[in-house]
Design a protein around this nucleic acid. Structure first.
Lengths: 127, 127
DNA sequence: CTGCATCCTACATGATACTG
DNA sequence: CAGTATCATGTAGGATGCAG
């Protein structure tokens, strides 16, 4: 039996599930795989998320140790979010999900004109 | 731009998200990685899911081509669910999520006595 | 055994406006 | 710029009972 944050789990899969089982967290992590980002940049790149939801999701991710939050005491304010090591460890999973999505499109979907996301294969730390 | 089931996506990640981003689908797939199963067996192994929800999730998974549904014309009825090839392709992702969960427990959780799930590394097809 | 039909509730998320 | 504060709502999922 696993115990995390006073919750009990019998399967390690459900731990991961519990952490990013909503509409936005995986997407936020996905964009942070490119490197640390400011609140504003996330707000723009994540898409149609509202500020309230973005703030709430960032707090949850921080609480669960997937991201860090660095505050610069400036005017105007500056806050930078970045993946923690355990958050960074999601990279291969996200990339595999990306590949699976491509496979799925080839079997059951089509490709249209327009911009699409690129995978985030390599770590920025390498560069 | 990807088009699947009349929905447009700009990122392949969101396709995967759209398909198993709820409380139960990943868990159902996880158990089907052991091999095909009857409705009753899923109902018991998945856990605290209700019949209504299980049925609904199985329909969604079938509709999205992740599982197949085979009906045996017997009394009492027998229905067997199994992963399709594209569903089976989720195995490495699920296993990596499992491993990530273990990592997460080591950093931010604890281990207690009690039964835990095993990973589903190999395909049953191999055996 | 394998479902479907109702009814119901909680929570995640959205819309909008405001603040230091 | 980086958030709160309110208010509103859709829908996923639960509880329960019935059916072929």
């Amino acid at each position: 039996m696993y115990v995390v944050n006073n919750k009990e789990y019998t399967c390690a899969i459900t731990i991961a599930q519990d952490i990013f089982n909503d509409r936005w967290k995986l997407c936020i992590i996905w964009h942070l795989l490119e490197g640390e980002k400011r609140y504003k940049d996330l707000f723009e790149s994540v898409g149609e998320i509202t500020q309230k939801t973005l703030t709430s999701k960032l707090r949850e991710l921080e609480e669960k140790h997937l991201i860090s939050r660095q505050i610069f005491p400036e005017i105007p304010p500056k806050v930078v979010y970045a993946l923690t090591p355990i958050g960074e460890k999601l990279r291969p999973i996200l990339n595999e999900m990306f590949d699976w999505g491509i496979d799925y499109v080839q079997e059951h979907g089509t490709l249209k004109d327009g911009v699409v996301c690129e995978p985030k294969f390599s770590s920025k730390i390498d560069k």
